[in-house]
Simulated assay, not measured.
Amino acid sequence: MTRTWFITGANRGLGRAFTSAVLAEGDRVVATARDPKGMTELANDRLTVLPLDIRERESAIATVDKAFALMGTIDVIVNNAGYGLVGAVEELTEAQIRDQMDTNFYGALWVSQAAAPHLRAQGSGHIVQISTVGAVGSLPLFSMYNASKWALEGFSASLADELRPFGISVTLAQMGGFDTDWAKSSMRFATGIPAYEDLRTAILGMASYPTASSAEPTTVPAGTPTTPDKPTSTHTDPSGSPDANPAWIEAPPEVGAAALVALAKMPNPPLRKIIGPGAHHMVAIALDQRRKDYTTDHEFTWPA
């Protein structure tokens, strides 16, 4: 069965890999990007490219409406667009904080709001929110990124209950580490305060944040427990020793794309799906730490 997909942030990283994999399946794709010029290499008679800045609610609604008008029906909505923001809470400006939430949280919310009435009308559909194992726990210097994804998970879990009676599924794809621009040119940084130099060194491997002109914005090494999408700092080794967590690796984006395609084929997709080598281990670590936090309350009993 040929399906039709709507994918945001499709011009690079995981979004581009998702688009390529879906086209390879023989499906149709409406791919959106703030700057769609980079999509020309994926030209295909089953690919429709639309410009979209997901931070703008009216634009998101108009673009989703246009996509449904062009395609007739859309089977899978993938809210992928997003980026990482690095900085201690007191280092971040209001503009940086608002833009992080506008992109990672509100962008997915606007697209989901716009798609819901169309999916209800057709009586089917699947909304996939590209989340992260960082939405299960937290990491110092990534507070606003974690917050944006925790917010995404909170509203999406409720959305799943609201739309289930109409034959619509919602899945939070909790992604592990993938070798994309997420930790490179897509990442944005605060202006550093000297008090956090030791923390930056422990988490990022550098005492100062890189400048905008840096070719490689962060030197966080793949395979260490301080990889940005890692869900909790409680169990990290500040030395960055790869041996502290040998299960954590960065996979090619094609691995994530194949998992997304497989997810869309499931007859009863789950609310949460962990994707990526080592990601299951990281979620287990974060949940174990939460269990330990709650056990300090003698009135609380963790479910068996």
Results as ranks from 00 to 15, higher is better:
D53W: 14
E56D: 15
E56V: 14
R57L: 12
R57W: 10
E58Y: 04
S59K: 14
S59V: 04
A60K: 03
A62Y: 06
K66G: 10
K66Y: 09
A67L: 06
F68D: 01
F68Y: 15
F68I: 07
A69T: 12
A69N: 10
L70V: 07
L70R: 09
L70D: 14
L70P: 00
G72W: 09
T73L: 08
I74H: 05
D75I: 06
I77S: 00
I77W: 00
V78D: 04
V78T: 05
N79E: 09
N79G: 11
A81V: 12
G82M: 03
Y83Q: 05
Y83I: 06
G84Q: 07
G84R: 01
L85N: 01
A88P: 11
E90G: 08
E90H: 14
E90P: 05
E90R: 11
E90L: 07
L92D: 00
L92Y: 03
E94C: 08
A95Q: 15
A95N: 07
A95L: 06
Q96E: 15
Q96R: 07
Q96D: 03
Q96A: 14
R98E: 14
R98T: 11
R98G: 02
D99F: 10
M101H: 13
T103P: 03
F105R: 02
Y106F: 15
Y106M: 12
Y106P: 03
A108I: 06
V111G: 10
S112M: 00
Q113N: 15
Q113C: 05
Q113A: 10
A114T: 01
A115G: 08
A116I: 07
A116S: 15
P117H: 10
L119V: 12
L119M: 15
A121R: 15
Q122A: 11
G123L: 04
G123F: 01
H126L: 00
H126C: 03
I127S: 02
V128G: 02
V128T: 02
Q129T: 06
Q129N: 14
Q129A: 01
I130L: 15
S131M: 08
S131F: 09
S131K: 05
T132D: 01
A135P: 03
A135W: 00
G137W: 00
S138L: 12
S138T: 14
S138K: 14
L139G: 09
L139W: 13
P140M: 05
F142I: 02
S143V: 08
Y145K: 08
Y145W: 07
Y145A: 02
N146I: 12
A147C: 06
A147E: 05
A147I: 06
A147G: 13
A147V: 08
S148G: 08
